[in-house]
Design a protein around this nucleic acid. Sequence first.
DNA 1: CGCAATTATATCGTTTGCGATGTAAACGGA
DNA 2: TCCGTTTACATCGCAAACGATATAATTGCG
Lengths: 157, 157
Amino acid sequence: MDDSHLKLNNQICFPIYSVSRLMTKAYKPFLEKMGLTYPQYLVLMVLWEDDELSVTKIAERLMLNTNTLSPLLKRMEKMNLINRIRSGKDERSVNIQLTEKGKKLKNEARPIPEKLLSELLTENIELSDILQLKEMLNEWIKILSIKTKNIELTQPL
Amino acid sequence: MDDSHLKLNNQICFPIYSVSRLMTKAYKPFLEKMGLTYPQYLVLMVLWEDDELSVTKIAERLMLNTNTLSPLLKRMEKMNLINRIRSGKDERSVNIQLTEKGKKLKNEARPIPEKLLSELLTENIELSDILQLKEMLNEWIKILSIKTKNIELTQPL
DNA sequence: CGCAATTATATCGTTTGCGATGTAAACGGA
DNA sequence: TCCGTTTACATCGCAAACGATATAATTGCG
């Protein structure tokens, strides 16, 4: 019986899963200084690009469910990073706005990507590798986000 | 002020984080049939390769902390997939052994990697891409696992 | 030998992440 | 207009993930 595919070293998902956790851990010392977790940092990055977004819009950008974001945003409101404002036009919708504190954190965050990058760049990893990896992963995201959405339509569970 | 590095699309960590979650989601329908979560499946894969391992050994293979594994293994014991046996030689150590049920699940799991792979293989993603990605990620794991371990030694938080 | 340091695992508290479900507002067709 | 459907969020429950801490067994050094 050929079990080679079931070996951890032959899996593709396991390295992704591991690298994801390791990267988050690599961010930790930098984010800790700002009192942020990685998902909170992601929310701020979205808002630094476009302030005043609905919960659903942020969820789309981060590919997270609103039921993950709702409590996360509440914690960020308590930390005085954002304001949650119910929309006047549509009473169901909640708009997220950066506070002054949230806006100012951008200055502290600016050097982080460079620092992370420099940790990665070694004799074995070059910038071109990183860019290539990013392109590949973005292609995977396209495929997987379609597949995982349509699973209940294309096949019975 | 150049903020381009702070944009989500220019980040490398975010695609990894997203693909990791999407992959886990892609596994879900297959694992659900066996009543498993993805981390439980990882533990089983380790044990299918080498039965009777200590908690620490499993933690090393999966790069997880024992405080993540302890409750996970307890749940798996309750599900009758494994037995937790305190070692005679070293009373601190707990050996994890597959039950018959745990061993038999391997047969149901065998076709999963092929199925996942076929979902990924499209006109835009080829097997060679996947293998290349895997090699790259394994290189990153090496770098990152050293970096994240030594962070408290090389720089003050 | 005796005791401090190390090791193996477990427990606690917090944050994510997500499926299932709830609730209220908005929409849309008869 | 009325009512079923959809949409936007929120809540609940559970499983990870991890830092900090606890506990018991083992090691090793003087």
